[in-house]
Structure formats: C-alpha cells, structure tokens
Design a protein around this nucleic acid. Structure first.
Lengths: 224, 224
DNA sequence: TAGTGGTCTAGACCACTAG
DNA sequence: TAGTGGTCTAGACCACTAG
C-alpha cells in the first residue's frame, strides 16, 4: 500500500478528527477559528478552510457564520427508518419527498449539527379521504459510505411504541399560513392544531422530526 | 423572503446544473476545464474550484485528476420512494417534492446547521376528498458519491416496522396564517392543528422533519 | 510535451455575530 | 467595535494523463 504524503489540510483534518475522537473537542465545542488555525499550522486561511470543508462534509463540524465552527453531535451514518401511519382512520397521503438543505429551524429541531442534507417528507393527513392536516417529516440524509453498499430505509415515524427510544410531542394551536393555507386549501390565519414530534434514540439524539398541521377547526388532538 | 445575491461560484454552479438538466451536458461529458471556466467567467481558478466542489458534493460531477471533471450518471441523484396508504379515510395528496434550501425555521426544527439543501415534500391532507390539511416534510439531501452507482430508496413512510429509532411529535393548535390559509384555503387566524414530527436515528440525530397542518375546526385527533 | 486537476500563498473586502 | 466566517484575487508549483 502506498503511503500518501499528507498535505497541510489533510494534517489539519486528521488533527481535529483526533481531538474530537479523543474527547478533547466535544460536541458543541468551538473549533479554533480559521485565523487561529492559520497561525497554528503556519498556513494560509484558504488551506485551513479547505480542511474545515472536509470536516464539515464528513459531518464532524458545522459552521455558523460570524461565530465559528463547532463540533457536531455524534453522527449516524446510516439512517434506516420508515414512516408508519397511526392505526386509526387517520391516514396520510404523500405530497413530496425531497432531499434538501435543512433550514436553521429544522436543524435546531433536529439538533442536526452537521452539514448533511436532510430528507423532507410532506404529506397530507386525511380522514375518510378528507384532508384534515399536513405533515412534515425530517430525517437526516446521508449517502452511503463508498465502501458500504447499504440502502437507506426510512422507518416509520409513528411507530415508536415498541422501541426503547423516546419522543417528544408538542401540540399547538396555529393559524394557517400562506404555505399551509395553500396546501390545505384554507385561508390565511385559519387555526391549525399542530403536532410536533421529535424522535430520539436511546442517547436522546433526535433522529427524526415531524410536524403535523391539522386544520384547526376540524380536529382536536388529544394526546400525551 | 430575502433575495440572495448570487456569488460568482453560485452562478457557475447554477449554469452547469442548468446545462446538465437541459441535456447540453450529458452523463460522461467533460465539464469545461478549470482554466476554461476561469476565462469564461472572468474569475480566479479558486472560485471555479469552489463551484466545482459544490457540484461534486451534490453529485452532479466527479473529478479525474489530470483529465478533467465529468458529468455524473443521472441515476445518481434520482431517488425512489414509495408511499403506502393505509386503507383509511384520511388521505394525502402530493403537492410537490423539491430539493430546496432550508429556511431558518426548518433548519431550527431539524437542527440542521449547514446550508445544504434539503428535500421538501408538500402534500395535502384530505378527508373524503376534501382538503383538510397540509403537510410539509423535510429530509436531509445528499447526492450519492459519483463513483457509486447506488439508488436511494425512500421506503414507505407510513409502513412501519419495529425499529430502533425514535421520534418526537409536536401537536399544535394554530391560527391560520397567510401561507397556510392559502394552502388550506382558510382565513387568516383560522385555527390550525399542526403535527410536527422529528425523526431521529439511534444517535438522536434528526434525520427527518415533518409538519402537518390540519384545518383546526374540522377534525379532532385522538391519540397518544 | 501540453493540458488537466491538486495544493497553496498572502493578501483583500464583505457579511454576520455579539457585546 | 472586534472577531468570526464567506467570497475572491492573481498568481505559484506539483501530480497526473495522454499523445
């Protein structure tokens, strides 16, 4: 096997990875600034940014402009999950599935600190065929590792009863906004009851985030 | 919504994407060399490389040192998904599936701290054919590695199995805002019941986010 | 050998964040 | 305001490819 001469940015990448793996840099910690790293490695800022881009791309850190780069939560590189319907008359109808860049809001909800794109699933909630709501689901998306030939499975969001993981639910009364009103064919400001769900694993990491918008004057959610 | 001024590298990215989508650049075709693009866009090679790195990252092209950059196999960024409808009365109707830049709100929800695009799925929730809600789903998006010829499979969202993942759901009663009211065709302030779900993996990373908007005064959800 | 991408310099100015 | 990341310049030299 050939021994590759490490370029400066590779060295920086390996150093920071090592610090993260050793625990010297923990989740949420700020990585030394670009200027600091430039001085530390006696290199240009461009080279430092090249190194950071690699780390961002691999999910080790994430960037917040004006603040710095921060260590991500431990990543999952495989996402297998599906969405499941409630076992009631309430049903869903797929609107769209997209792989997108997550918004800040979504990232916060999902505690998604990496640079990874996420899967967004939009669907209608129907009851006896009628659209009574709108559901938004978010999941981290990751391509397979080059070596690993695995498939991504999106596991049922609803089925959480039989697992050991936790979930948090928020129930809100909202007014239909432009997007939602369009989607649900209701007027702006129309009251909406929303259910926001965070799916967590045994480490309390959020592995999924879902928000369901129910047309507010038609349904009332009673839950826990 | 703010209008983002396009940087040079963004322009290059969009131009090349357009050419690929229009078929002017086909799978296997060589992208103009870095020097050619530098001259064409009257910019530095560093900026051109920045643009190419974005395209590489998104799976549109791949690099071969000493030869050039080449358009990836279209199949690489296509993804398949299925949706299963329970035979219940509540149903969903797909509105759109897009790969978009996440809004701040979405990023927060998904705790997605990068600017990566995400998959956005919009759908109606119907009941007996009537639109009763609107669903927004978000998932991280990642193109496959150029070399890997794998497909993305979006497995039935509704169909669940016993999985090891968790989810968090927020149920809200909202007032229809402009967007939702438009989508759901209800007046501003109209109550909306929303269901927001975050799907997490075993590491509690948010791998999916969904928000469902249900017209609030028409339905009542009973669950747990 | 000519052309390609890979790494890197030593700056510059802009945008965003927080006090 | 000071510090951070974002974009960009106008070069340089190295590594790889193919004729």
């Amino acid at each position: 096997m050939a021994i590759n001469k490490l370029s400066i940015y590779h060295i920086i990448v390996e150093d920071i990875k090592t610090k993260i793996l050793k625990g010297e840099l923990k989740s949420g910690d700020m990585v030394p600034s670009e200027n600091q790293l430039s001085r530390e490695y006696d290199t240009s800022r461009v080279t430092v940014r090249k190194a950071l881009s690699v780390l961002i791309n691999e999910g080790y850190i994430f960037t917040v402009q004006g603040k710095g780069n921060f260590v991500s939560d431990p990543n999952l590189y495989e996402y297998e999950f599906q969405f499941k319907n409630e076992e009631h008359s309430l049903d869903t109808k797929l609107i769209s599935v997209e792989i997108v860049k997550p918004t800040t809001d979504i990232r916060i909800h999902m505690q998604h600190h990496s640079n990874d794109k996420i899967v967004e699933i939009k669907s209608y909630l129907t009851y006896d065929g009628d659209i009574i709501g709108y559901a938004l689901k978010y999941m981290p998306y990751r391509p397979k590792e080059p070596i690993l030939e695995k498939e991504f499975h999106y596991i049922n969001l609803e089925e959480t009863a039989d697992n050991n993981f936790g979930e948090t639910v928020k129930i809100k009364a909202e007014s239909a906004d432009e997007e939602i009103s369009k989607i649900l064919n209701i007027i702006l400001g129309y009251p909406i009851l929303s259910l926001e769900t965070k799916i967590e694993n045994e480490n309390n990491d959020i592995i999924g985030y879902e928000k369901i918008y129910l047309i507010g004057d038609r349904y009332q959610i009673i839950g826990e």
